[in-house]
């Protein structure tokens, strides 16, 4: 066995795991903080084992705010342009092509879920922040509220995380 190569592979694996962790901590330093409101949810629904299911208001895009192509396949990348209004960020427009953000604006990446094509229905997308892990058996505290504010951090390198839920 070629030892140098072997240890290179081992070091790379450790480095990969460390980068995953470091990226997360570095976000606090370099990231941009955004407050989003979750959509009202069925109070029985949001808690699954050790994580809370979150649905964000901005994940439902009314057809009037959609400026991308008609047909977008499930799983494709979409971009949401959000603008700050008071404390919260609200959806301005969304497309499957990249949008430029100005001051007081951010662009968040999401994945297309589905679009109701029969009527001019809304586009449903997934931000990838739908699960918030909480300590086991603390689910009770999270139940029964219909809407919450979630603090999300966006890193310049595309990573994002939930900082806290109020």
């Amino acid at each position: 066995m070629k030892r140098v190569w072997f240890y290179t592979i081992v070091v790379l694996q450790v480095a990969f795991l460390l980068v995953m962790a470091v990226g997360y901590y570095a976000m606090d330093q370099f990231g941009e903080t955004v407050h989003l409101r979750t959509a009202p949810v069925d109070p029985r629904d949001p808690f699954y084992g050790d994580y809370v299911i979150l649905n964000y208001e901005v994940e439902t895009i009314p057809a009037s705010k959609w400026i991308g192509s008609e047909e977008v396949e499930r799983g494709e990348k979409v971009f949401l342009l959000l603008e700050q209004e008071k404390d919260l960020y609200q959806l301005l427009k969304a497309s499957d092509e990249r949008i430029e953000a100005k001051d007081q604006q951010v662009v968040m990446e999401a994945r297309m879920e589905w679009h109701d094509q029969t009527s001019d229905g809304p586009y449903s997308v997934d931000l990838g922040l739908g699960r918030y892990y909480v300590e086991e058996n603390t689910g009770g505290e999270w139940e029964g509220t219909d809407s919450r504010i979630v603090e999300v951090v966006l890193a310049p390198w595309g990573q994002k995380k939930i900082n806290s839920i109020q």
């Binding site: 066995m1 070629k2 190569w5 072997f6 592979i9 790379l12 694996q13 990969f16 995953m20 962790a21 990226g23 997360y24 799983g75 994945r111 990838g128 922040l129 739908g130 699960r131 918030y132 892990y133 990573q159 995380k161 939930i162």
Partner: peptide, 27 residues
């Protein structure tokens, strides 16, 4: 899971099998 990553592809499996492939190459 700890750091709330969500992946939309099999990328974690790609990294994992790359490590396995590396071990196969050296051993």
């Amino acid at each position: 899971q700890m750091y709330h990553y969500t992946s939309y592809t099999a990328f974690p499996f790609f990294v994992w099998s790359l490590a396995a492939y590396g071990l196969w190459k050296v051993s």
